[in-house]
Design a protein around this nucleic acid. Sequence first.
RNA 1: GCGCUUGUGGCUCAAUGGAUAGAGCAUCAGACUUCGGAUCUGAGGGUUAGAGGUUCGAGUCCUCUCAGGCGUACCA
Length: 565
Amino acid sequence: MKLKSHINHIIQEAFVKAGIEHEAISVSESTKAEFGDFQFNGAMALSKKLGKNPREIAETLIKHLDLDTILSKAEIAGPGFINLWLNPLWLALQCEVAQKDARLGVEKRAAPMKVVVDYSGPNMAKQMHVGHLRSSIIGDTLANLLSYLGDEVIRQNHIGDWGTQFGMLIAYLEEMHKEGSVSLKDLEQFYKDAKGRFDADEAFANKAREYVVKIQSGDAHCLALWQQFIAISLGHCEEVYDKLSVKLTRDDVRAESFYNDDLSRVVRDLYGKGLLKESDGAQCVFLEDEEIPVMVQKSDGGYLYATTDLAALRYRAGTLGAKRILYVVDARQAGHFKQVFRLAKEAGFVPGDVALEHVAFGTMMDKGGKPFKTRDGGTVKLIDLLDEAVLKAQDTIKDKSSYTPEQIDALAKIIGIGAVKYADLSINRESNYIFNWDKMLSFEGNTSLYMQYAYARIQSIFRRYDGAIEGHIMISDPLEHRLCVLLLGFEDVLNRAAVDAAPNQITSYLYELATLFMRFYEQNPILKEGVKQEIKMSRLVLADLTAKTMKQGLNLLGIEVVDAL
RNA sequence: GCGCUUGUGGCUCAAUGGAUAGAGCAUCAGACUUCGGAUCUGAGGGUUAGAGGUUCGAGUCCUCUCAGGCGUACCA
């Protein structure tokens, strides 16, 4: 339910009745319980425009406010705040409706938007490392979220299967006379060796650059070797996605190489539009007020990632017909995307009304605030990190004796992976993220385990009760009132998180929901003796809606819930 | 040098331009014949890096300073 929209509508009606014209101003959640459920601060903002003092405007508004259905009370406070209370009867009824609804009252968008979410994007020359974690889970969450809200989501895994590093690998391969199948671990070491040669030997580096052009021109021998790398590497990625419950499949793969045939056309079209300029033998676009040009073709004829990104942008906006394109990529590439997005629009590759957003995220750091590395300074393989998470999660299971080994495995997987994901998703994605096992596997604070515990505790109520949950909600307690308001605000939170591409808004909400329910439950017994049947039912319905909302929210984050832990 | 970005209690983080800046961890003090105490209640702890400015109102917007991170054309 779009709770705020309903309230905004009532306010808007009051303005119309009062004969005041203004641009819409939305209510916001009250900052304190004594200020009601929502507050309207628009009177202050309108004061200058209308030439009246804000309290006067607020008084006029309040006179015309419908306080009979959704709202039950309105008060003016301070310089002209209007504090609003929701009608408990209406709240109760709406929560009942939500509890019976499979979508919990969350509406699907009337006008779905076609959205491309570009995320994960591992490099095929190497194994996935922790650097891919954030993109993979933030991107997957955004895709889940937008899809749930009714958008038509197209996931795109822009895997790095092309570029100079492959020239390097193939040049090294030839030098080593190595052919045939290469195991994954070998590939990792192989990359390191090749890189070592590349950095140390200028002649080799030049050869590698030549080979880039060679694969780009379709040399059969090179291509065959190249495909081996891709097959092995993609298989590894799928193993990681499976462990992570990230919903990327082969169908979502649009590799860099997918755009190969289009690259020369991109350059030609830029030339045709008079945007291209040769600089030191390279083809560049110099954007106004930009110090560094966008280079689309190197002096040796090879293309660059800007070229591929331009081709991908055109494909996504044109062929796929996306109206919003999200790039879930490390914040360090902000400069690149700023330029490429701008150029894509100036060159007419992407229509002006298509939203291009770089969903940037910060670097993953260790406890000491240093970039996350292994003890010897190497990159941490993602698969190792996930396996460690599952192992550590086993230790958090309290009563291991009551489970079979299989159950413990299943539980540990859900808990461990969930903890890794929740910890990441629960912070503002733009700041650097400090990775801390102890914190993420704690039962205290805004953690996955606290959420799991809260959920399991509600499920345990239902196990004890073991009957049909059918009845009416009767709000008789301030905490109960707040709980209902919070529950009905679910859709507003999801929408806002979707607009801002900010999963941490969902986790904040879920944590608030869980703690509020715990407090409510502490003070309002459900199954204890002496609780009247009607009250018991009312609280069971509320508990059920709370649990369902938690489950749905966690599922959007790609986290499963368990009924007991 | 230039550009982007961050700076909020001891620590990790919140906060559409709105009221007295909120949580959690840690610390201290409480509640238990547990509807799962892996819980709940309470307390202390802040000049939102600093200085100006815009505004009825600034952690939030603008300018400058300081500090950190990142980027800075033939890698992606």
